[in-house]
Amino acid sequence: MRKQVDPIIDRYRGDRTAIVAILHEINAAFRYLPREALERVSEQLSIPLSHLYSAATFYRSFDLEPCGEHEIQVCLGTACHVRGSELILDALSRRLGIKPGETTADSKYTLKRVNCLGACALGPLVSIDRDYHGHLTAHQAERLLEAYEDEDA
């Protein structure tokens, strides 16, 4: 744990604006924010743990539970919404057997809703591991997931 966290901490020593940046890096390194990592940051940088936890729970970019291997984000921006993105979220949720925000029991997939990915002309849009897939229907979203499942199998 320390081996991974300490270099991140060292990069931000003395930077007063760093809470969110540090959390981004830890989240990327562990695919969530482990408690011990935040405790280490708190101790090393004299930032109250309560403030770190406050930021960790406030901002949507951070995860408090380990994420799956694949991160599926369903864009629920306005342009996507008027073109039916809720149906896509429902379809993926049904298919994976998890609610948005959850991770499958085999730790393969985490399903997230995101308020806009900014590729509005391509809606409805789903991003899997930051690869964008646009103009989807609920059916195509299921097929897309199958393709990932086949690849992993």
Binding site: R35, L38, P48, L49, S50, H51, L52, Y53, S54, T57, F58
Partner: peptide, 24 residues
Amino acid sequence: NAISFVYRGAERKVSTPFDAETDL
């Protein structure tokens, strides 16, 4: 700083870090 606001919007509440005992 033993407690802080955590989560946001309708879920906002006051809690200790990780909603657990704190030596602070």
